[in-house]
Design a protein around this nucleic acid. Structure first.
Lengths: 168, 168
DNA sequence: TCAAACCACTTGTATATTGCAACTAGTTGC
DNA sequence: GCAACTAGTTGCAATATACAAGTGGTTTGA
């Protein structure tokens, strides 16, 4: 990867950082699937990323300040990847992509349910979810709201959709 | 380009359609720079796309229903590319990317000014701009608002920034 | 204590995509 | 009729990606 940029346009610069077919999927899995280890990201992704590509993307995202890596105290070889504030703020981009894809592309039922909820929830729900991510990834204190978190609600809806599909 | 998809996830599907380094830049130029012809897109882009890549991306975007192509009555060889409703609705994704890039990446002053305005304007401004795009690209009738359009305001701000830079 | 499983990657190689420059085939304006 | 303009295409080199196998080390459990 070279350092020279094509232009100073914000959209172009953003695309140079996350405008490939894998980076945003890794971020997505960290956000919505709470994958924090290399092995989790490698084996639990829907799309089947290869290990060399994953290693390369994690390195780039580290260099860009979108994620950080810490040693896992429970296992000398494990690393824990966390989103930075900059990474967490990619959520609105993912949410908009998710909404657009849900509206116009052949999304599967069980994977579309989260997109639907996130789209209906709008910016307010996104902000709440970002606060939850700040808690899990940055250790930020958060004023607890009543009822299940956004993350829990999305996960529960997904599991209901999977169960429903299995019954058919 | 093959037809098989990696997964039915809306984010993944969106990335498979516009998740490369050029497609969204072409859309950006059509939206914000009002480039409608092949030659305009080719020569007036900040980043310098090559003609084979541009031809390929326009074909893909046509296939995907994001743009349409009509013959230009003034010139037998010219085609006019227009955004479809599906293409126009990519604006919020571009706006979010623009805002994120403006906040975190080394954006140039004259190209950042539009990002700043768009970010400050928020979803309400985006909706207004999308209405303007529906007028120019889809021929939709629109209730005129008082004062300059969003497109005009963005363009004027950009030109002021360029003029200011030139004086230094 | 030792083998099997697990961990985060790296390496090698085939294939696909991209970037660059030149070229084609036709149209328009003077 | 010719120069400039139009939308692309072609050939080739450089780069990125995909897939399978391997590396060096750690943990688990009998």
């Amino acid at each position: 990867m070279t350092d020279d940029q094509r232009s100073g346009c914000p959209i172009n610069l953003t695309l140079e950082v996350v405008g490939d077919k894998w980076s945003l999927l890794v971020i997505r899995d960290m956000m919505f699937g709470n994958r924090r280890h290399f092995r989790e990201l490698l084996t639990k992704s829907e799309e089947g990323i290869s290990s060399n590509i994953l290693a390369d993307r994690l390195k780039t995202l580290l260099d860009q300040g979108i994620i950080t890596r810490d040693d896992d105290p429970s296992h000398k070889q494990k690393g824990i990847y966390s989103l930075t504030e900059q990474g967490i703020e990619l959520l609105p981009i993912l949410a908009q992509m998710s909404g657009w894809g849900f509206k116009y592309l052949p999304v599967s039922e069980e994977l579309g349910i989260r997109a639907k909820l996130l789209s209906e929830g709008g910016p307010k729900m996104w902000a709440e979810f970002m606060d939850e991510l700040r808690e899990t990834h940055l250790g930020a204190k958060r004023r607890r709201k009543a009822g299940p978190s956004v993350g829990e609600r999305l996960q529960a809806a997904y599991e209901r959709a999977v169960a429903k599909k299995g019954k058919r």
